[in-house]
Design a protein around this nucleic acid. Structure first.
Lengths: 197, 197, 197, 197
DNA sequence: GATGAATGAGTTTTCATTCAT
DNA sequence: TATGAATGAAAACTCATTCAT
């Protein structure tokens, strides 16, 4: 009995998160009212605040929950090391994820492009991402890239660029072709490096 | 006399645009109040509405003015054709512009990542950009790229990715190294294609 | 079994009254939430309304219960007459009570200083107090005071003044010295009157 | 022209203060809504916040403005010394003021009887009152009172008691007779002290 | 044209109370 | 009887915009 109740509770909470994400992604955080979110989730205005302390906490929950999911993509087996296979798997996973999480991407970019909002989340975001960036750097270094730090930056920036362009125009952006292009690019780079030695 | 006055008027208007851009970039459009903008520009709250019909028009003015400037970078001599030299000049100009227009970039990305805001500007934005994209496509086609449409998308997405990463973290993002990397990449591509024939 | 249960019930109710008084005294009636009271009393939010119809009834219960206790001080043996001994005993008891019921005093004064709240309780309060005031008036008259009605008002107002000052600053207000002062004042008055005759 | 405008502004502000005081005194601070105050003052809901930063600041303004007025009563010529004549003048002024400021008194007692509200104002209140209390203490000491500190506390507590009783029941409380009683009491005390020497 | 006080719709959030379990 | 999730009315406060001066 109680089990069922808790289940329902959690379902409701998840529904609020989902609807909030959709609305935030569509209209932006500030232009979405808590009343709208509540209505979309089929609950009363006041009930929203039984689930989340306030609107900002709701945002944080969405962002961190999803960031943690995403972080998994980079080093799925948690061994702290990224192999070549895992690297290409990561590209694969990232593009797959981008295809599924369009809404989150929009929200994410709308946040990071507003410094005063970004700064609220910045520290915690980096805490999540930092270890993975280091592993990525280590991978590029071991693989023999000349300037692995720059390569990490370039790689991530490129993924950001693809993500935002896909998120903005999912119907027309040729996401699969671009994934192939990037995969080939790195395959080629690694091959070149191997030939040098 | 009148000349001077008009000059002052226009200076004020330009100052409002500048200060509004700074504030929008920092706090986001919605979190910036018209009162703040007026104060930053040294005019009265009510005077703002002598220069701009409303807050949204102010935003549009900023965006379109700057987009037009940016469009210049792609085909500076307006001949409708992009030569190889112009292409690399464009990369150069773009990175230079990114370095100077960090604030606009933040604003731009915060807008495009909010569909309901983006849709308001979308049509006009594409009207500005479309001819240039076509020229870019034509350039890639003429240069022998296999899939010029995808190449345009890839190229622009990559620039977006670099721009947003630089805008978010201008102190650490290795913008010059990355510019070089991209330039080399296209130099290499063009060279490869030429060798094939 | 049932006995024990009822006991527990009543204990809980008493605990709610006690905790509510503490919170009302500290933060005021309106700034104290029913949730806080419930938590302080170790019961669920909803359970509060099993004990008391609503928040206002809870307040009324606290006030009238305590007022009835206080009324006892004036005429402890219920014989409707106040002797000289009882009068000084009353002063003694009042000061003792003030020392113990600081929280109630704060609540009481916060209520009576809000006419629209006071008016809700006014009639019932006077019903409780009126007989005692009459007896006090009778005592002053019998003792030969010139203007016994004014003396009653003066006496009670003075006690109010002492009470509120003690309640506001219990650490520093010299309550014992002041009790002695007032006792001496009335001893002196009664002595003077007796000498006159 | 501008002069007239500023005048009107200040009149409005004063009207808001007046109406707010009336409402706070009648219903208490928390039970009075800003909308009610605005309506009572004949302005729009939002306009209230052009005059006062927030509801709390409005309260503070009322309290401190009036407290400063009241402080004047104690040492009107600001010489830092209270003579016997000034002392009796002070009693006179205080009672006169009590008669005029019933509303403020209710507000004042409703504030001081709510510790969490009182603490907000406490420090500043004491800053205003402290010098006067010291002068009053000095007066009692110079006049030969045995325990001047206790006398100050007693005197002020008594005035508080009279004030609150009058404020609660202005129609029936025999304020003039009581003023006379207190004046006589201190006349008598001073006379007694003089006879001792 | 410039000003800034006035406006009121709109926003987040609170909380006493209800009621299904 | 006890619970605590759900409710929605109401509150403080914000802010783009207007308009009289």
């Amino acid at each position: 009995m109680k089990e069922t109740k808790r289940k329902t509770q959690e379902d409701k909470r998840a529904l609020v998160l989902q609807k909030a994400l959709e609305l935030f992604a569509d209209k932006g955080f500030h232009s979405t009212t808590t009343a709208e979110i509540a209505k979309a989730a089929g609950i009363a205005k006041g009930s929203l605040f039984n689930y989340f302390e306030n609107k900002e906490q709701l945002l944080r929950t969405i962002v961190f929950d999803t960031m943690l999911q995403m972080a998994e993509l980079i080093d799925p087996n948690h061994d702290g090391v990224v192999t070549e296979e895992e690297f290409f798997g990561m590209i694969r996973n990232t593009f797959e994820w981008v295809g599924k999480k369009r809404e989150f991407l929009l929200l994410y970019f709308s946040i990071v492009s507003q410094p005063t909002v970004y700064n609220l989340l910045c520290a915690e975001l980096w805490e999540i991402l930092d270890p993975y960036l280091k592993q990525l750097g280590a991978f590029f270094r071991q693989s023999g890239f000349e300037d692995p730090e720059t390569e990490v930056r370039y790689f991530l920036a490129m993924l950001d660029g693809m993500s935002i362009n896909y998120a903005m125009d999912p119907g027309n952006f040729p996401i699969e072709k671009i994934e192939k292009k990037i995969t080939l690019y790195y395959k080629y780079q690694l091959q070149e490096i191997n030939q040098e030695h």
